[in-house]
Nucleic acid binder design. Structure first.
Length: 112
DNA sequence: TAATTGACCGATC
DNA sequence: AGATCGGCCAATT
């Protein structure tokens, strides 16, 4: 058990809570996992997640709802497909802002 | 020990 | 809209 494994698990736990039809940014996932400035550690952590865990890794996007993979990366299209299964279609490489769970989501809930 | 490298982020040009 | 840049932080080389 390394320190990193513990952090990975915290990240996986957060990702597992993302509801179908919604997405969350790397930075936000990191923040909720107790890593306020650990956005860069989320991607690698997802890559280390066991397949058996069936983690919804595709619901984790870059800031502003953009897919983090380069367009030519094989993972890009796979992520697009998985998102479409969730009912999320990308427009110009991004999902609608209203589908991104942000730190302000609670405020919007309260304010309407 | 120092340099490099990311599935990042926000500001700026 | 797209490219660049500095900041970020830990794993890897």
């Amino acid at each position: 058990m390394s320190q990193r494994d513990t952090i990975d698990q915290a990240i996986w736990k957060v990702v597992a809570t993302i509801p179908k039809g919604k997405v969350m940014a790397y930075g936000e996932v990191a923040r909720r996992a107790g890593l306020p400035r650990g956005a860069r550690r989320v991607g690698p952590a997802l890559g280390r997640a066991p397949e058996a865990m069936k983690l919804p890794w595709h619901r984790v996007l870059g800031a502003g709802g953009k897919i983090a993979f380069p367009r030519d990366h094989p993972g890009y299209q796979r992520q697009v497909d998985l998102l479409s299964v969730d009912g999320l279609l990308l427009v110009k490489g991004k999902v609608a802002a209203s589908d991104v769970i942000t730190a302000q989501s609670m405020d919007e809930l309260l304010w309407g």
